[in-house]
Amino acid sequence: MYIDPEQRQNIARRLRSLPQETRQPYDWIEFRRRARERANASSRRGVNGKKYATLAAALVVAVMGVAAWIRLTRPDMSLSAQSDATSGSGAVVIGPPDTVEARAEVAERWLASLPDEPIVVRVGTRATIAGLEDRIAQLDDFLSMARAEGAQPAKLTAIEEQRTRLVNSLVQVRYAETLVSASR
């Protein structure tokens, strides 16, 4: 794109010959009016902007608060059940553990945490407890023999479930006994 230097200077001269001033679009009074209008518009935008920002922040806080409240008040059975079982707090935990063996383990752990003899021995209760403990011991023998002989899993599960029911009964009797002891 070659342009003759003389042509270039000619073009530049024509451009420089254009008027350097032109009638301003409006006078001083109009300029001040427009300036005030812009200032008002920008302050309105600023106020509205702050308002919307505050509203948005409040909404976010409200949503987070609701989410936190839902999370905190939502019952979490397995968590509470586990913490109670491990702490030995005295609460009877029967049911939440998924498997039969897990349930039995939890119950036996609680039983083990109890003293061997209550403060007050009731003859009727002692007899019930002794009978349950004997029955549980018999089922333990059956289970050992069945596992050694390679019995079918369904049979083993049936024996384990029966043992778990007996352990739960024992837990309930022992728990009642501790409540009575505690009330004295």
Binding site: P19, E21, T22, F31
Partner: peptide
């Protein structure tokens, strides 16, 4: 004074 400054500069600035 501001009006005088505006009047002195506006035509050339707008051009």
């Amino acid at each position: 004074a501001q009006a005088a400054v505006y009047t002195a500069t506006a035509p050339a600035a707008f051009a």
